[in-house]
């Protein structure tokens, strides 16, 4: 018998610290598989953000830098400019990317910074114990919205892909999820494209992955995936929000 599925090389042997059923692990594996398939682990430098994924520096086999909270894309910009041949990516959660790091995100995107951004949206702050995130849904109960997120006071969630898709510097903005085998395959294809874009010098690519936080949502891992389907996907529709290749084709200006 042949091995048809095994741990990718770009994932280290360090056991993941994530809670049981947390989809961070799936996305980690997809990124590592893509690094393997593109043969770029040795050129890659990843930026770990603050939050649950901070210790991703132990899990990715490529060189890693840990950034201050929200600053991952500024750090990635510095790496990008210093290493013209490097493959630079960030791995960030929703609090990091869409609250404290909004300015860094928007400006890296509008500069068309040639980096790959993996954005985990699980609608909650995981590491600090389940507070409201910028992407928490209206009426979602969290530690800091115990009566549900009141949009009159706490405002509305941020739809990152939609927002960034208006910027000229963005090559790819795509929202995916990992709730099923089919969607994991779509997610992997998106992540691969986001890295390929960078290698081909196309500019900023972001893949938003709708993810679960079973622990802080108070659900079993299986039920959490169902909650994601029932509540998150309707508010955050899956799909490609910007693909520079296709836009150019539509405009016909590359003919």
């Amino acid at each position: 018998m042949d091995v048809v599925f095994k741990k990718p090389h770009a994932l280290t042997d360090a056991p993941l610290h994530y809670c049981p059923g947390c989809t961070h692990g799936i996305v980690h594996r997809l990124v590592a598989e893509v690094l393997d398939e593109l043969g770029v682990e040795g050129k890659a430098v990843g930026v770990a953000s603050v939050g649950c994924s901070v210790m991703s520096y132990n899990y990715f086999g490529c060189d890693m830098v840990q950034a201050p909270h929200g600053r991952a894309q500024a750090v990635a910009t510095g790496l990008r400019r210093a290493l013209p041949d490097g493959v630079i990516f960030t791995y960030q959660g929703d609090g990091d990317l869409a609250a404290i790091g909004t300015a860094e995100t928007v400006h890296a995107a509008t500069r068309g910074e040639n980096i790959t951004v993996i954005f985990i949206n699980n609608a909650i702050y995981g590491m600090t114990g389940g507070q409201m995130a910028p992407t928490s849904l209206p009426n979602q109960i969290t530690q800091t919205t115990p009566y549900g997120r009141d949009v009159n006071s706490a405002g509305f969630p941020v739809r990152v892909c939609e927002m960034l898709s208006t910027l000229d510097g963005v090559a790819l903005a795509q929202r995916v999820t990992v709730d099923s085998v089919k969607n994991v395959k779509i997610a992997k294809a998106a992540i691969k494209k986001a890295f390929q874009n960078q290698i081909e010098g196309k500019g900023y690519s972001i893949v938003e992955v709708l993810s679960t936080c079973p622990t802080n949502w108070g659900l079993s891992p299986v039920d959490a995936l169902q909650w994601l389907r029932d509540n998150m996907i309707p508010y955050y529709p899956l799909g490609v929000y910007k693909d520079a290749d296709k836009r150019d084709n539509m405009k016909g200006d590359k003919e």
Partner: peptide
């Protein structure tokens, strides 16, 4: 070389952090 006008002082120093982490003088 690189001259980059960042979106904030915070972003600028973190770009320095990234470049320095890559081993160049920044």
């Amino acid at each position: 070389g690189t001259y980059l006008q960042a979106e904030s002082e915070i972003a600028a120093i973190n770009m320095v952090l990234g470049a320095s982490a890559a081993g160049v003088r920044a």
